[in-house]
Design a protein around this nucleic acid. Structure first.
Lengths: 220, 220
DNA sequence: AAGCAACTGGAGTTGTCAACTCCAGATAGT
DNA sequence: ACTATCTGGAGTTGACAACTCCAGTTGCTT
């Protein structure tokens, strides 16, 4: 995991490498707080380097975003595997949703990458292919145990997360925690108990669900 | 309800009044489909009039938006009163949420006005004052009947609507109906049945909730 | 039917904002 | 001490939406 040379690129001079790390760190902080919409000038200023330096070191904004969020997205994927290690299938499912949303809560840029409001097309498409099967396993296990409503489909999961993440975004500046109320409501609506309502429509197909994400990506 | 002269403004010439109506109608359609972000040039083109004409007739974009959405917002408010006429308190509550979201589904501009992603500050603040007490009555009636979870607060309602409206927006181009699945889930999570989960945090206060809306308004 | 105030359309102006580059000067490494 | 590498911030480019100007047209009055 050599920080600089991703692909056989010539080694950077010490000062350049330091600036690279400072830019990366600044981007982490600024993207997390203000989203991917910020311009590189702001990030460079926050890092204490010139704009040109940031551009020379990363090429463009998208490359910086990709480099920065690769690990963050992978961490999200790992949650699904962790969830499977929890004994109680329902608790596993709850943990998956809760922990994923907690990750998203802390980082506006990550929300935008994951739900493709900007940037990360290829980045996310790939993560998605790793995430969905794992999440699917968590879901099925809870459904087989009769704890998660059986009419739920894999494609519902991203949309449920998105729905709650919207509340996070909306309420963040006023309260960092109210979103948990709505997660609670949703989880209660997913937990099997007598008298659950029949679903009024079928879920999206996998292809449709991918289409949703890519459509919302093409805005940028 | 004389269409032209809002405030003692001199009567418009017949052709001008016709162009006014055409612009209004075009704006209705374009805003509904593409949101408030579209420019007046597009609206004017769609109306078949010149840009200057639209500007002369309305002054600016915001004025056009205000004029256009006043009645739409009022219609939304009226739903709360209608909901009270439904005998079953739970069905009344379900109807309020469902019908409000159906209104929002059909009009992206309305979603943006109501949730203040653009424009309508004063417009909505006023509607809110009429809407909240009415909605509150619908809620309390269902809670008193033991059908709606008792830990729900008036300020939860706008956020729940917002949450589902985000799914509407996100999935609209792929499926105009999937959002009803998530409404179903949420409603099941709100319906009283044994074993509902305790709320992890208190709801926003009324002031906080208003703050949320106004913060999200100040972007434009 | 003629005259004029009211109106029209679209080319053009203004302002904003983000992405990205240029280059004279500074610095790391040998 | 020498040079390839790197730096910073002023400046360029391009896009885009809000809004205006004005030469020409049209509805209304008498």
């Amino acid at each position: 995991m050599d920080s600089s040379a991703s692909r056989g690129a010539r080694r950077l001079r010490r000062d350049a490498e330091a600036n690279r790390q400072r830019t990366l760190q600044a981007a982490r902080e600024v993207f997390a707080e203000r989203g991917l919409g910020v311009n590189l000038d702001d990030i460079a200023r926050h890092a204490g380097v010139g704009v040109a330096t940031s551009y020379r070191l990363f090429g463009n904004k998208q490359a910086l975003i990709n480099e920065l969020f690769e690990e963050r997205v992978d961490a999200l994927v790992a949650l699904a595997d962790q969830a499977l290690t929890i004994d109680d299938p329902w608790e596993g499912f709850v943990s998956l949703l809760t922990m994923a949303l907690e990750q998203l809560e802390a980082d506006r840029g990550l929300r935008e990458v994951v739900f493709a409001e900007l940037g990360g097309r290829p980045l996310v498409a790939q993560a998605r292919r790793k995430f969905m099967p794992a999440a699917d396993a968590v879901m099925r296990r809870a459904q087989d145990a009769g704890l998660l409503r059986s009419d739920l489909t894999t494609t519902d999961l991203p949309l449920i997360s998105y729905m709650v993440s919207c509340v996070i975004q909306h309420t963040q500046p006023v309260s960092s925690e109210v979103w948990r109320r709505y997660l609670t409501i949703v989880l209660d609506g997913l937990h099997v108990r007598p008298g659950l309502t029949d679903m009024p429509v079928v879920a999206l197909t996998t292809a449709e669900e991918e289409h949703v994400a890519s459509l919302n990506a093409s805005r940028s």
